[in-house]
Design a protein around this nucleic acid. Structure first.
Length: 372
DNA sequence: AACCCGGGGTA
DNA sequence: TACCCAGGGTT
């Protein structure tokens, strides 16, 4: 076990400097800072997990106007909640927010369990850091946060080596965060830690000249502020392949399917997808036996953060297909419906509009042409 | 075009 | 316990 160097400052010195900076330069007028109830702090924290303050504010205001308390939220339908979440992305968090409201009402008598960190962290969508943030900010009890801002500041201050996603690094950062957490002024301290990372100890250009810790910061001493926190080790992206069926009818409309509610492109509309030509054919035989295949189009690649997807569009034509399932629709590229489309599907469909798909006389073998 | 983000899920 | 996942915004 490696001996860790001690923290660069005693807790009381760190707190005094941080709060002095916060009093002069922190954010004091955010909507959730006034009438700072657990409910309002919770909603703001969940929204802020994925989005910056300026974007969150109008969403937060609309949300509060429609769902002023946890009871109102628990009584709403999931659709209504997701409607107000539209545009924020990460809909799983909107769903968790709704689920957690129901747990608070059903299992905690409508009161957030703000006197028990573990109970808070057991609520859907709330982990250790968010639980700490809600408790500290809504009650002033001693609780510690470790969000991305705090991880960045602390890893610079102590030149913590290694990617914070690694358990050993994360443990060290939690220990530092707990070490500095005061026993008083928790509301201000917690906001100060977030503001400090967000506005001064920024990812790109930290403002070291104005930093109250620039005399003790180990990263600054080495002139290596930008090296911390270390980034996630990059891996070669795996490549997956898929066939996307462009089944067109005589009116030039294309068959779309709605994707399952969770996972990749959850809830969005897309083209029927297949791992290989065999399963595509089987699908056509079963559901559109009169369809005629055209030669497939050139493949293209869509890149995600964690894999590359090689997409081969496979056009086919059918005179008419009456049985359209609930999660299916005919889509007219020239008069697009206002629905959510997966990004590459959207690109494919908009490129489709000016063209007419032609089908050969008979069924063709699947023929893949790869562009360079 | 990389990089980032807190929590949930899985092997 | 040690990964992987989502997907829009920032840089």
């Amino acid at each position: 076990m490696t001996q860790m160097p001690p923290p660069v400052l005693a807790p009381d010195v760190f707190q005094r400097r941080l709060l002095g900076w916060f009093d002069a330069h922190g954010r004091h007028d955010l909507p959730w800072q006034h009438e700072r109830t657990p409910y309002r702090v919770w909603v703001s924290e969940i929204m802020l997990q994925q989005t910056q303050v300026a974007t969150v504010i109008p969403y937060f205001e609309r949300f509060m106007a429609r769902f002023p308390n946890v009871l109102a939220l628990a009584g709403a339908s999931q659709d209504e909640v997701l409607h107000l979440w539209t545009g924020l992305g990460y809909y799983a968090r909107g769903r968790n927010l709704h689920k957690a409201a129901r747990v608070v009402v059903d299992e905690h008598g409508g009161e957030f369990p703000v006197h028990n960190l573990d109970d808070m962290a057991a609520l859907p969508g709330i982990g250790r850091s968010t639980a700490g943030a809600i408790i500290a900010q809504s009650t002033g009890q001693r609780a510690t946060i470790l969000d991305g801002n705090v991880k960045r500041s602390l890893s610079r201050l102590h030149a913590v080596e290694g990617w914070p996603g690694r358990p050993a690094v994360e443990r060290r950062l939690w220990a530092l965060a707990e070490h500095f957490t005061p026993r008083e002024r928790l509301v201000d301290y917690t906001q100060a830690m977030m503001d400090f990372g967000a506005t001064l100890c920024r990812r790109g250009r930290p403002d070291c000249a104005r930093c109250p810790f620039n005399d003790v910061c180990l990263a600054h001493e080495r002139g290596e502020e930008r090296r911390f926190p270390e980034s996630k080790p990059s891996k070669a992206l795996p490549t997956r392949t898929t066939l996307m069926l462009l089944l067109c009818d005589d009116d030039g409309r294309v068959l779309l399917e709605q994707r399952p509610p969770s996972g990749l492109w959850g809830g969005l509309w897309g083209l029927p997808q297949f791992d290989d030509g065999e399963s595509l054919r089987a699908w056509l035989d079963a559901r559109a036996p009169g369809a005629k295949l055209a030669p497939s189009w050139a493949s293209f690649t869509h890149v995600f953060s964690h894999f590359r997807l090689d997409i081969t569009p496979q056009p086919a034509r059918i005179a008419r297909l009456d049985a359209v399932g609930e999660a299916q629709r005919w889509y007219d590229p020239e008069q697009p419906d206002s629905i959510g489309l997966a990004a590459p599907v959207k690109a494919l469909l908009s490129s489709l509009a000016p063209f007419t798909l032609t089908a050969p006389a008979g069924p063709e073998p699947l023929h893949q042409e790869y562009s360079s």
